[in-house]
């Protein structure tokens, strides 16, 4: 019985895959021709070269990291005060908490590239739109994990502060935050890592950073320069990951 159900599931999955392949028009000739063209592109990409723009590219890269940094900072600054609204041990009202948490999910459900498209159209092209686009979904993410960190905190320390005459605000400051801070900081660093990855492509829709240069090179068929930019992105992402992982490990141990 259970075997036949597994088989049915497997067959259904394979059928759906075939429907998908048919729907996206993946004919063998198309794949073959595309692969040929792809091989030709890869040949064009070698050797990767910065052309005459090494300085511009490095500046654009710095702008990308700056966007990620400020986007994370903005998101954390907004998420910190509003996260208490979603924490069960701060806000008792279940309906309010539910609404707040669903709105966090809503902010997270839309990719930062969509926000970038919207903010470019709202505040103009440039890194500022990118910063806002990175910050918006992160507000949802950070507010959610912050409120979970606060919910996971020990109750007794808060009670201790209250019992020795502290106000509600002081209870949050001295009872909750010291417990939740390491988790929060490490989550912020993690967000910064992921934002560095996202920030590299926001430029494709005009929101600043290295993505703008990459999109341009691909549109203009400068494949060797495009390959150089991709390598630059890989190195930067790896470096940021490495640095952030080290800091996170130190935070957790402390």
């Amino acid at each position: 019985m259970s075997l036949s159900r597994t088989h049915l599931l497997f067959m259904g999955g394979s059928l759906l895959l075939l429907v998908g392949l048919w729907r996206v028009d993946a004919s063998p000739t198309r794949i073959w021709e595309g692969l040929g063209k792809l091989g030709w592109l890869v040949a064009l990409m070698w050797p990767p070269t910065p052309g005459a723009y090494l300085q511009d590219l490095l500046l654009a890269l710095a702008e990308t990291v700056a966007m990620a940094f400020l986007g994370t900072l903005l998101a954390a600054a907004i998420a910190l005060p509003i996260c208490f609204l979603g924490a069960g041990n701060v806000v008792g009202n279940a309906l309010l908490r539910f609404t707040v948490r669903r709105s966090y999910d809503g902010l997270r459900g839309i990719d930062s590239l969509v926000w970038a498209l919207i903010f470019v159209s709202a505040v103009g092209m440039g890194p500022f739109a990118g910063i806002l686009a990175l910050a918006v979904p992160d507000i949802g993410l950070l507010a959610k994990v912050f409120s979970e960190a606060i919910e996971g905190a020990e109750r007794r320390q808060v009670e201790g502060v209250r019992a020795s005459g502290g106000s509600r605000l002081q209870a949050i400051r001295f009872g909750l935050i010291p417990q939740a801070a390491p988790v929060m900081l490490s989550q912020i660093l993690y967000t910064f890592e992921s934002n560095t990855r996202s920030a590299t492509i926001l430029g494709v829709v005009g929101a600043g950073g290295i993505g703008l240069a990459l999109g341009d090179r691909i549109r203009l068929n400068d494949w060797d320069e495009a390959a150089f930019i991709i390598l630059l992105i890989l190195v930067t992402v790896a470096a940021i990951d490495w640095a952030s992982r080290r800091i996170r490990l130190r935070l957790i141990r402390a």
Partner: peptide, 13 residues
Amino acid sequence: PTLVFALIFVYAF
């Protein structure tokens, strides 16, 4: 990033 692959593949395929 997925989008970079997409940019390249749109060109090839």
